[in-house]
Design a protein around this nucleic acid. Sequence first.
DNA 1: CATGAATGAGCTTTCATTCAT
DNA 2: GATGAATGAAAGCTCATTCAT
Lengths: 182, 182, 182, 182
Amino acid sequence: MRADAARNRTRVLQVAREQLAAGDDSLQLNAIARLAGVGVGTVYRHFPNRHALREALSAERFRELVDEAQAAAADVDALAGLRRLLRFTLARALDDSGFASVLESANDAEAQTSALKAELDLAVAHLLDRARGLGAVRRDIEADDVRRLLCGVEHALRSGACDPTRTEVYLDVLLEGLRPPR
Amino acid sequence: MRADAARNRTRVLQVAREQLAAGDDSLQLNAIARLAGVGVGTVYRHFPNRHALREALSAERFRELVDEAQAAAADVDALAGLRRLLRFTLARALDDSGFASVLESANDAEAQTSALKAELDLAVAHLLDRARGLGAVRRDIEADDVRRLLCGVEHALRSGACDPTRTEVYLDVLLEGLRPPR
Amino acid sequence: MRADAARNRTRVLQVAREQLAAGDDSLQLNAIARLAGVGVGTVYRHFPNRHALREALSAERFRELVDEAQAAAADVDALAGLRRLLRFTLARALDDSGFASVLESANDAEAQTSALKAELDLAVAHLLDRARGLGAVRRDIEADDVRRLLCGVEHALRSGACDPTRTEVYLDVLLEGLRPPR
Amino acid sequence: MRADAARNRTRVLQVAREQLAAGDDSLQLNAIARLAGVGVGTVYRHFPNRHALREALSAERFRELVDEAQAAAADVDALAGLRRLLRFTLARALDDSGFASVLESANDAEAQTSALKAELDLAVAHLLDRARGLGAVRRDIEADDVRRLLCGVEHALRSGACDPTRTEVYLDVLLEGLRPPR
DNA sequence: CATGAATGAGCTTTCATTCAT
DNA sequence: GATGAATGAAAGCTCATTCAT
């Protein structure tokens, strides 16, 4: 990538982050372009739509999530690792709706996002396999399902007053639900 | 309500339904007004925003859901009733995203919707109470939680290819998750 | 027209005039909207394109031209009237390129412009008829031709350094050319 | 000029001609570059703007016009030569708006164009001188004026439905107008 | 209360031009 | 000199919402 393009890309991401920090989730590409001192065309070239921008904004945190998942997969106690990973992911998704939407979307704008998602699902698949060995996870659930269900829980938590006790309860419901039926 | 007002309201709802049936979920108030041969202002008077319109469109089906919930609450087998009710609700929400959004929203536009929701939650509360007596539902879950979690599951199902087997699995995960932890 | 619409229309025209006075012939609808404190949509609603705006800006001066043409048609000396009218029109067209483009265009955006043009051509037709009676105008030339040829002369004058003596010469060439061939 | 530069220049001109032949008068430098398999920068190096490209595209036909003018200047019947030359030029300008714009412009992009124009004006000046001797052209008209007035006539013909009879009439008006006033 | 023209913010595309490589 | 990705100004459309009539 050309140096000036990289510079502009960085400025755009920086401004977008400032907007989010200021409590504006709308990520209006026009406004961002103006604030970044850049033409709209430049923003659209780098990020063809809002979702692509969200993906770029989430890339770093997604990388961290993948690391976390890999650590969890290597945990001695698979069940504890699973619980910790889901709690970690849920907290992050609740904190950052952009991140949640990237995690949930079935249509990635950037190949890098799909790659990260694949890496995540791979680590989670290992984790699930080991947990299954302990009788802690049912047979008909894959990494993909866990990701989707977790986003569902995040959704359920968002729809209503933010109540920290609900977070723990819903997370527990999910973990119990993942166990093989009695 | 004046006779012409009632007529207009009916026409608007009818056109909105036609639009949805034609596969257009956008419910653009301008377009609906035009197709209904009515001013935009008239549409806005009856339905201050898209969500209010969705509520009106869902009222009938919501009423049916409440009936179903009351029947389930009266079922001899509370657990079977719960499962049947959740499956019924999920099917409806998956079939009709407007209905799903009304079911999920914490901010009702119309008092009637809130009333229906209260009636629903009341019936579900009874059902849960009885199920709890059978050891089939954990203590820290209310009717409200069930509604939100079900919407979460609906969300999880939507995010990805429509796969009927997933519907049953996710529903099962939810029901298992609702049971008291082992 | 609604009072607010009329107000906005007026403001837009006023700003457009200011822009022209400031030497900016580009008539950018976005810029005008901004300066007029009005949305772009409003400008586009009133004036679907730049040409429509030019027509509106020229309406008054076009009306004056029609009056002048009617006066010329009533002149005792038809030939003098014709010469005076052509000189008047040419001066105006050279002074105001927007006016010239409205005068020349075959595709009017507003019906009012077409009406004015018809009125102009009617007056000129009378004038030509009388001049023909004096042997001062050839048979195969209509009012429409005179208007187009005058715009051609304006064009010829514009293409090159502005030289007042050329104006008189070219005008004379046109008037001599309109006479019946010897 | 380097061999590859010459090759590129040729390819660009060829593609531009194909575009014009296909009815696209916009001569978009980006599109032409793409179709020519060449960078935009290369097109801009050869032709700093659209007008420069038009001049290059017209060079050959302009050369032919100059030849025609020199032939006319050598014609025994100066008046017939003048008429023939004007008719020839007008036909060419009407057929090719790019050619017309090059003929008309007061600001040539390429020195070669200015040279051709000078050569043209010289031949026309001779022709006019001889015609003046026959009393067929007024004193206050130069070759430059004839070129501009002819472009004016072309303009007048373009503004309106294409009507071959008008071409002859307007041309006649011009020739009559060029004669000394009675 | 009904009406719908009017409003204007926002979005996205286009394209002439620049400039880093 | 060649290259073409990158730039950003401008254009003009869409549509939710308002408000004069």
